[in-house]
């Protein structure tokens, strides 16, 4: 059984920005343990000599010419926004720092 703890799930939920309830954390801790046990077997065959594949069909150097195309209007951009001030998206105060 994997060593998945409630604390770990709650840390992951924080990283993933999901305010899980304590009940969800409990349930997920159990489920995650079972799932991880069953998928951890990938390491059995993933030996050092095997290269990783990140794209199923290998392509390289896929580029776009540096030519401007059409843009969205501010109205289109804001159309789906939960809140805006007419030109910018509005969000609650940010805890933390200037980036």
């Amino acid at each position: 059984m994997s060593e998945i703890t409630n604390d770990q799930v709650s840390h992951l939920a924080n990283l993933a920005r999901i305010a899980l309830t304590p009940e969800e954390i409990d349930k997920l801790t159990g489920e995650l343990g079972v799932i991880i046990d069953s998928i951890a077997k990938v390491s059995e065959v993933a030996t050092a000599d095997v290269p990783a594949t990140s794209h199923p069909i290998r392509l390289v150097n896929v580029f776009r010419p540096d030519v401007p195309g059409p843009t969205l209007t501010a109205k289109q951009a804001l159309a789906g926004a939960p809140e805006h001030d007419g030109s910018r998206f509005k969000v609650s105060a940010i805890l933390g720092e200037e980036q």
Binding site: D85, R88, F89, K90, S92, I94, G96, E98
Partner: peptide
């Protein structure tokens, strides 16, 4: 940022 009531985002 400290003490701000809300923030506006321009992308």
């Amino acid at each position: 940022i400290q003490g701000a009531e809300y923030s506006l985002v321009d992308y």
